[in-house]
């Protein structure tokens, strides 16, 4: 749609403002994989409530906004092999790399972090190649 990019920009500004609040108020880097992963592997046990409150906000706001949109189709794949493989790769990969799109991408690039920039280059390249391979060559996604 025509105005998709405007909503992308508005949403981006909201995401960045969330990251700014988390940094300036709590002194923490807003990385989704780190916040979740610390709860999964126990490394964030001492800050578990703070992590859970953050995730509660992430889940609650879409619930509140959803009625304004009526229906939102996420066009997600219903191929179990694709979804499970993708989830495992995203979970293990982001923890191994210590960050994902929010931590390395938004928070890393904005402070000119070399690690954030390198991570972003690699996950975009891998993502692009994966889509091209599985969509145009194999036709499974």
């Amino acid at each position: 749609m025509e105005q998709d990019w405007i909503w992308g920009l508005v949403g981006g500004l909201l995401i960045g403002t969330g990251g700014a609040v988390y940094l300036l108020a709590n002194g923490r880097i807003m990385g989704a994989s780190g916040i979740i992963g610390g709860l999964v592997d126990g490394s964030g046990r001492s800050t578990a409530t703070e992590r859970l409150m953050f995730l509660a906000g992430v889940i609650l706001l879409p619930i509140l906004l959803y009625p304004l949109y009526g229906h939102v189709d996420t066009h997600v794949s219903s191929n179990p092999a694709v979804i499970i493989a993708a989830g495992l790769l995203v979970g293990a990969g982001t923890r191994l790399a210590n960050g994902c799109t929010s931590g390395h991408g938004v928070c890393g690039i904005s402070r000119f972090s070399l690690r954030g920039i390198v991570a972003t280059v690699f996950y975009i390249l891998a993502g692009g190649l994966t889509v091209v391979f599985f969509r145009h060559l194999l036709g499974v996604i």
Binding site: A32, S33, I36, L55, V58, I59, L61, P62, I63, Y66, T74, H75, V76, S77, V82, I83, A85, A86, G87, L88, L89, V90, G91, A92, G93, T94, R95, L96, A97, N98, C100, T101, S102, H104, R115, V118, A119, T120, F122, Y123, I124, L125, A126, G127, G128, L129, T130, V131, F134, I141
Partner: peptide
């Protein structure tokens, strides 16, 4: 960093989801 980001990117491309949006869309 490089290996993990490459794995993450492959999963991201396969499903179109990364950690933040996967949680935001659960409801």
């Amino acid at each position: 960093l490089v290996l993990g980001s490459t794995m993450f990117g492959a999963g991201w491309g396969l499903a179109g989801l990364c950690p933040g949006p996967s949680i935001a869309s659960l409801s």
